[in-house]
């Protein structure tokens, strides 16, 4: 039985003035998969995630998350976990106070919430920082706070915008484990990144975006096969986004081979 599609976008377009942030993007996010959203800066990854969250309305196209239009049904966010690209947290609260706030907004059951929080906080190693003000935390610890916020309520869909920024390798490894655990429970996970190794190591499927368009899509091996000459995802990435030539020129110049 094929996995159920939990989120779907069809020919979605969104422009900011003359900039086409999304230029006809279609994708499906299925139950129990980790989908990597790859692409250079400005390719529209953040815009796409915000549209799936229902934060912005697309200019045209069809969007459906858990069977609803997310922009018109904000209640669907009860079943989504979200980590934004820009971490604007309340600097004058402690992590514990922030987690409590979110638990109250989501009306979580107190005992179950405390158990879940304890598990997440201990595994990500944030336990000794629970009473510090968030403003005094390092970038990596703030990122951990944001990740925990997204996982607290055991969502059905996780939308993560560059979630590994600032995490050290050990924590990134644990984060990966948390994602696998969520996936095995049927959670549909989509995360954007421009770090190729991460996508290669974690994702079941990847989508490469460029200038608001999907330029390659499929399982990691398939995308690799797509451009048979290339050996690594990095080379495929450069090839499909049309940057290979540019980058090789720069590299040559740097090595003094020009």
């Amino acid at each position: 039985m094929p996995a159920e599609v939990l989120a779907r976008a069809r020919d979605v377009r969104k422009s900011y003035g003359v900039v086409k942030a999304l230029d006809g993007v279609s994708l499906e996010l299925r139950e129990g998969e980790i989908l990597g959203l790859l692409g250079p800066n400005g390719s529209g990854k953040t815009t796409l995630i915000k549209i799936l969250m229902g934060f912005i309305r697309p200019d045209s196209g069809y969007v459906e998350v858990l069977g609803m239009d997310p922009y018109d049904n904000p209640d669907v966010r009860a079943r989504i976990g979200y980590v934004p690209e820009e971490l604007a947290l309340y600097n004058s609260l402690t992590p514990k106070e922030l987690f409590d706030l979110v638990a109250r907004i989501r009306r979580l059951e107190p005992a179950a919430y405390a158990r879940r929080l304890d598990l997440l906080v201990s595994s990500l190693g944030l336990k000794d920082r629970m009473d510090d003000l968030i403003g005094s935390l390092s970038r990596g610890n703030k990122q951990k706070v944001a990740i925990i916020l997204a996982l607290l309520h055991e969502p059905d869909i996780l939308l993560l915008d560059e979630p590994i920024v600032g995490l050290d390798p050990a924590v990134a490894r644990i984060f990966k484990e948390l994602l696998y655990e969520m996936r095995d429970r049927g959670c549909a996970i989509m995360f954007s990144t421009h770090i190729l190794e991460v996508a290669e190591a974690i994702c079941d499927r990847i989508i490469i975006m460029h200038k608001g368009k999907v330029v390659a899509e499929g399982a990691v091996e398939d995308v690799l096969k797509l451009a048979a000459r290339e050996k690594t995802l990095e080379e495929v990435f450069l090839e499909v986004t049309g940057k290979a030539h540019e980058v090789y020129e720069v590299i040559k110049a740097l090595r003094g081979e020009a």
Partner: peptide, 30 residues
């Protein structure tokens, strides 16, 4: 001011588990 130390995570009281109360508490604290 305080040194880092592990804390036991206690569940908040059932009576306080409403969105309005959560934001109220947060606003007063902030």
């Amino acid at each position: 001011v305080g040194e880092a130390r592990e804390v036991r995570i206690r569940p908040p009281s059932k009576l306080t588990m409403s969105p309005c109360f959560g934001v109220l508490l947060k606003d007063l604290k902030m």
